[in-house]
Every structure is written in C-alpha cells, then in structure tokens.
Amino acid sequence: MKAWRLDATLTFGDVPDPEPPDGAVVVRLEAAPILSYFRAYVAGTLRHYHRPTGPFTPGTSGVGVVERVGRGVFTLATGQRVLVTGNYTAAENVPDPARGLIGLTSETPAVRDTWRDGTLAEKVVAPVSTVTPVPAGLGDVVAVTRCLVPYGGLLRGRLTPGETVVVNGATGAFGSAGVHVAKALGAARVVAAGRNPAVLERLAALERVVPVRLTGSVPADADALRAAAGGPVDLALDLVGGAVSPDSTLAALAALRRTGRLVLMGSASAPLPIDYTALMLAGTEIIGNFMYPDDAPARLLTLVAAGLLDLGAIPAASFPLAELPAAMDAAAAPGAPLVVVTM
C-alpha cells in the first residue's frame, strides 16, 4: 500500500500491507483530515508532542471500511464503514490508564511505539476502542473528526439546552466546529469570539450565533461578550490555538455569570493569572479538559443522523493523498476550511 512515513523527513512510498493484531482491525481509508498545525508537527517544533521511535505513519483520524479483523474482535466486521479517531486509552482497570493520540503523540513511550502508525496511508491498523461504526445512509462524515474536540469540552462543561455559550477561538479549526456543535446541543445563543473577520462573517450567518471580534482589551472584550450574549454567560469553551497572551481567555472568564464554567482546551503558551478572591466569591469553575470520552464519536454520529448537526455547514477542501505537502499548506492558512486527503 501507499503511505507517508515521518522520521527525519516526510516521505511517500510503498510499505507492506498491515496485519491486524489481537483486538484491532485493518481499515481501508477513504479520507483523513489534516491538522492545522501539522506542518509544525512535521518540523518537530511543537515541544509538548512526543513522536514514536523511528519511522512511522502520522495522522490521527479518518473514515474508511473495515478490511480485516484480528482475534478478539466480536462485533466489527469486514465491509463495515467506520470512523477512526486515534484517541486511545488503555483498557486497564487502573486509576490513570495510559493514553495517547495514535499517529501523533503520547507521554507513554510504550503507547506511541505499540500503536505507532496513523491514517495518512491507504490502510491503518486501529485498536477497536478507536473505531466507531458509521450509521447506514450517512454520506461524507469526515468532518465529525473536527467536531469531536469541542464536543468533549462541551460535555465536560455540562452544557444544558437553553444556555448561552461563548466559544473563544471561534475562527480557528476546532473553535469554528465548536460553534456548530454548541448549536446542535441546544445552546440558546452561541457567541463566536475571534479575530478573523472573514470567518466571523461566515459564522454570523448561522441561526443563534452572534460574532464578537476581539480587541485584546480584557474589560472591553468581556463587555462585548456579555452584550452579544444578552447578559452574563453560562459556559465558555476556550479553544484558542497557540496564544501568546491570556487576554482573550481572561475576557471569556470575566464574561461568565456567577457559578459559570470555563473549559480550557486550547494551546496557549502564556500563564493564566487568576484572581483568587474573585474566583471564590463568584463560584466560577475553571475546568481543564483533554479530548473526549470513548463514546463521543458514536454520540456525534447520532446527532448527524438525526439532522441536528449539519456537517455540510463546515467548509472543506480535499487533496489526493500523494499531495499531502499542499494539503499541509492549505490547512495552516488562517481561517482555513477542513482540509482532508482522499485515498
């Protein structure tokens, strides 16, 4: 099969067809998304990411058809269309099981070397815990992979239908998807906060979405968020990527109502200064969250099948697998659509 391999450099060529180990399946892929920061990952400039040892195939998620099953696989079957996510947690009954993102990173060397190859290939070996059947009748569902991260944050933030949500970083890859997911989960109003005017204009066309262009002034931005929400905010989901300043996060925090919740899922590099007394008196929750529960892909696909989450509203662009370098450039552009490679 054809696959991309990453070691000192990124190369494309023929590799042997994979064999499914126990508890895993081989999936023949149709499409795989490209992360907006994938070029920086390939360059090795992301300090919190830990690659497998030696050459491996990168790529975290995709959609395809089960081609082979390993021993101990009892329900997934050949010919079944599935979603592969790469969000892996070891199935061990311990307080803190090992985890990682297959094809990307893990803090546990054994995880990243055991499940080392990802989805930028014609076929991928995937442990069954990362594979979800796609309901019959659904077409292109690769955009679900973009929605999973904000969905995990909204679940962790206990979003209740009828609440008001601020999505900070709404003009980024996961933030813009978070606006759509918050709507699908019943938010009465979604305040899309960001700096890219073109993306904000696109989001403003959505029902129950109000855009706010951030200025960098914490008091002014907090006032603007509250005004857009029609009052204090119930829940803020912070998905700002690569921020070197905490100002937009602090503005979202300041816009919350008493006992409001702030979920942190972005990649800010600056410390977040917290007013201890103000936080205590307001009863505000600050929740750190990584990824999403194992059943999240199935639950999101149910929303799609029910017509509550419109994946067609998420702009997308596709490239052949062999044109990955061009896809990487497209994904890194400000306000880029969902970029996928097709097999």
Rank of each mutant, 00 (worst) to 15 (best):
325 P>M: 06
141 V>E: 10
333 A>T: 12
316 A>Q: 15
225 L>R: 11
134 V>M: 07
38 F>D: 03
211 P>S: 13
116 R>H: 06
4 W>C: 06
274 I>Y: 07
82 V>R: 01
252 A>I: 09
211 P>V: 11
144 V>W: 00
67 E>A: 10
158 R>F: 10
299 R>T: 07
262 L>T: 02
321 L>Y: 08
293 P>H: 13
178 G>N: 04
274 I>P: 04
137 G>E: 09
126 A>F: 03
338 L>Y: 03
33 P>A: 10
161 P>R: 08
208 R>T: 15
266 G>C: 05
90 A>H: 12
280 M>P: 00
116 R>Q: 07
284 T>C: 11
146 R>D: 13
137 G>T: 10
46 L>F: 06
101 L>N: 12
235 L>P: 00
170 A>C: 13
288 G>I: 11
79 G>L: 12
116 R>V: 05
67 E>W: 02
204 A>H: 09
18 P>R: 06
332 A>R: 14
209 V>R: 04
140 D>H: 13
20 P>N: 04
332 A>W: 09
334 P>C: 03
32 A>I: 06
172 G>F: 09
80 Q>R: 12
20 P>W: 02
155 L>K: 09
203 L>V: 05
255 A>Y: 07
242 G>Q: 07
240 V>Y: 03
130 T>W: 01
17 D>Y: 07
255 A>V: 05
257 R>A: 14
8 A>C: 04
296 A>F: 05
294 D>M: 14
32 A>T: 15
281 L>Q: 13
237 L>R: 01
134 V>A: 02
18 P>C: 09
322 A>F: 00
291 M>Q: 14
186 G>H: 10
81 R>D: 00
199 V>P: 01
263 V>A: 09
46 L>V: 14
17 D>E: 15
46 L>M: 14
190 V>H: 02
307 G>N: 11
49 Y>W: 13
112 R>T: 05
80 Q>L: 09
8 A>S: 14
72 G>R: 11
48 H>F: 15
208 R>P: 02
234 D>S: 06
128 V>Y: 04
333 A>V: 07
286 I>Q: 12
169 G>P: 07
274 I>A: 10
214 L>Q: 03
129 S>F: 00
273 P>T: 08
341 V>W: 08
198 A>K: 15
269 S>R: 15
161 P>E: 00
132 T>H: 08
91 A>P: 13
104 L>N: 04
